[in-house]
Amino acid sequence: MTDIPVFDGHNDLLSCLWEDGDFSARGFFEGREGHIDLARARAGGLAGGFFAVWPPYDAKTAPDPKARERVFPPADVDVARRATLEQAAILARMSRDWPDAIRICTTTSDIRAARADGAIAAILHIEGCEGISADLTELYLYHAAGLRSLGPVWSRSNVFGHGVPFLHGTSPDTGPGLTEAGQRLVRECDRLGILCDLSHLNEQGFWDVARISARPLVATHSAAHAICPSTRNLTDRQLDAMAERGGLVGLNFGTGFLRPDGVKNPDTGLDVLIRHLDHLIGRLGEDGVALGSDFDGTTVPAALAGADRLPALIEAMRKADFGERLIRRIAWDNWEHLLERVIG
């Protein structure tokens, strides 16, 4: 147990519950395989975070995981709409039926109240907007249901833009950026107070958002391209642009985005996370770095194989002489302050 609470920039719990057919989220409350359940969250100090809705890909058309160029085909829109609705409904039911354990938050005042009450403060996030039409009809419905963060694309193309494929040893500049519909989506997110996540956008999409949006530039779960040259990571030029806008990066725990060799290997030490944090702090400043685990969505170091292991990362930061004030910023305060500027 840690005395420092953690606000996490990304987890895929909802899509895992959905894929398991656990629409009541029984596994979250009673225990489940994977990285997050209620007991482990409480044990590790996970007191808030972004809960992602993610439309799945068709396993029959997915690229070979061992292929160097992992390019995912577009999602089936009908499946994506159903998955988006049903996964968002899982979180809505959790928040309605167990508000003492977890609750959807739409403002930073809600986040502070949930933390004071001992409930997990959940931000509803959509990762890949295949479940939203080009005319944005569904966006307003999800906003009314609590949506306060979205990534226009996952690592595939859709009506809004082009996501980066999972490549190693190359630039995130992998193709065209936002479509006209994507540009409208970003503008409407600005107007509604919805965070626009840069994590899966390619570089051209990143610069499109930087040009269109007046909000801070945010990547909820990414890492430093200078250390691990994955297309999913951010170059120093991108990080510098984010710093100029008072932006923030939540550090992804995925070993394939951390290790210089890009290998998904749980036998990876926490020192590589410290290297990324040091680099990000050097580019973004102490206010621009937070955590974005990608729990339940990727291969993480064995030392962080569950939300209950978060104190190990806190201790690793202490051993690296980060200092208590900086650790608290990275673990919680920076997300809270960023969200206050975006969602209110």
Rank of each mutant, 00 (worst) to 15 (best):
D135P: 00
A219Y: 02
M242A: 05
R245C: 07
C189W: 00
S222T: 11
P152C: 11
S199M: 09
A226Q: 11
W154R: 07
L248W: 02
E188K: 15
D197M: 06
P176F: 09
L195G: 00
R245H: 09
R215A: 12
L141A: 15
A219S: 12
V153W: 01
I132Q: 02
T220H: 03
V164S: 13
A219P: 00
F253M: 09
T220K: 06
L234K: 01
W154S: 07
D135Y: 06
M242Y: 02
L136M: 09
V159I: 14
R184F: 08
R148I: 13
H143F: 15
R148W: 12
L251P: 00
S230C: 14
R191M: 05
F166K: 10
R232V: 06
E138S: 14
V164L: 10
D190Y: 05
A243H: 05
P229D: 11
D240T: 13
H143V: 11
G175P: 03
V153Q: 00
L198T: 04
L136H: 00
I132P: 01
Q183F: 08
S149I: 11
S230I: 11
I194Y: 02
I212A: 04
T231I: 11
N252W: 08
D135R: 11
G246V: 04
R184K: 14
A134W: 02
S222M: 10
Q204R: 15
G250C: 02
E244F: 05
R187V: 02
S171A: 08
I227H: 03
Y142A: 13
A241G: 04
H143A: 15
A214Y: 00
L141C: 11
R148C: 09
G151I: 09
G146N: 12
P216H: 08
V218P: 00
A210V: 08
S157F: 10
V159H: 07
E188Y: 08
D208H: 02
L139F: 06
G247Q: 06
C129N: 04
D208C: 02
Y140R: 11
G193N: 05
C196A: 14
W154N: 07
N158V: 12
L251A: 04
R237A: 14
L234Y: 01
V209W: 01
T220F: 05
A224E: 07
L150A: 04
C228N: 03
H221N: 07
C228E: 07
C129G: 01
Y142W: 15
D173M: 13
A219F: 04
L239S: 02
E203D: 14
N158F: 08
A223S: 14
F253R: 02
A223Y: 01
Y140T: 10
P152G: 05
Y140K: 12
S171P: 07
L150P: 00
V159M: 12
D208T: 06
F166W: 09
V186F: 04
F253V: 06
D190M: 10
Q183C: 12
V209K: 03
E203G: 03
H221W: 08
R211M: 13
E188C: 10
G193D: 09
V249G: 00
G161I: 14
Q204L: 12
D173S: 15
